[in-house]
Amino acid sequence: MTLVRSGAFAALAAVVVASGCSKGSEAPAPITRLVIRKVTADLSKADPSAPYWNDVTPGIVKLTAQPMIAPRPETTTTEEVIVQAVTDGTRAAFRLRWKDPEKSEAGKLGELSDGLALEFPLREGGELPPVFMGAKGNPVHLFHWRAQYQRDKEKGKPTVKDIYPNVSVDMYPMEFKEAPGGTPEDREKFSPGVVEGNPQSYAKEGVDEVIAEGFSTSAVQAGHGSTAHGEWRGGEWTLVIVRPLTIEGGSSLKSGGGANIAFAVWQGGKGEVGARKCVTMQWTPVVIM
């Protein structure tokens, strides 16, 4: 038995050497279901260049300019995402690659961030929610990564000075730099988003968990330890998003199947944000094997 197995591996290795590639760099083909491969690896860290990706066959999901509501892109800016997925039994990691000619992290006025979101039906069983952001009573659970959010995690939320290094400000009256008794709340009094606790106004952890029940309803939720890390190189993003397999009160991916996934991509450099995005037009079934 052992001999046979070794032989099989040797044969496989020979094929790999001959073709000069592994599964991970095979020419990907369009998929009708997404297989999540079980791996023995630590998935607590989102790692786009981990070796286990070499053993997972990549698949293509096709995207289209969001067609349902205005504002929307005039043309499809991101045509496809190459997807791979693995699980260690408690987490699922998704590696996503797509072409984007420029890296956009937002910051300055009028600049928008590159981004990608994974979408799952919130509830198991029953009728699938509309793939376009779900519906009232049939919500969806999103994992929304932005280059901007990743920058927050890596370098901290940018200050105005970070965004505009040459900015000159006489003073912020609420800074109370030297005055005793000034509190952090006092300092942010003129920052309404901060005062109101808007999640957008606080440093991000790379990926937001969002629940939506239709267009214009998305709301950021407390996270469940999802992580993400993306790298932009040569006109292409390679991003890994890691999420727990099961989330109480949220979406779950269980062995065997029954789960579904959908994708959305934003190219900040092309003015995409919010509903200006490219999306998959249907759910893709997910199978854990």
Binding site: P71, K108, P158, P192, V194, N198, Q200, S201, V273
Partner: peptide
């Protein structure tokens, strides 16, 4: 998202890069 900044012809909606609203 800045949709209001784009849409207001008088340009009286303004994006705050600190609060990101």
């Amino acid at each position: 998202y800045g949709e209001c900044v784009r849409a207001c012809p008088y340009k009286k909606s303004m994006y705050n890069p600190h609060t990101r609203t």
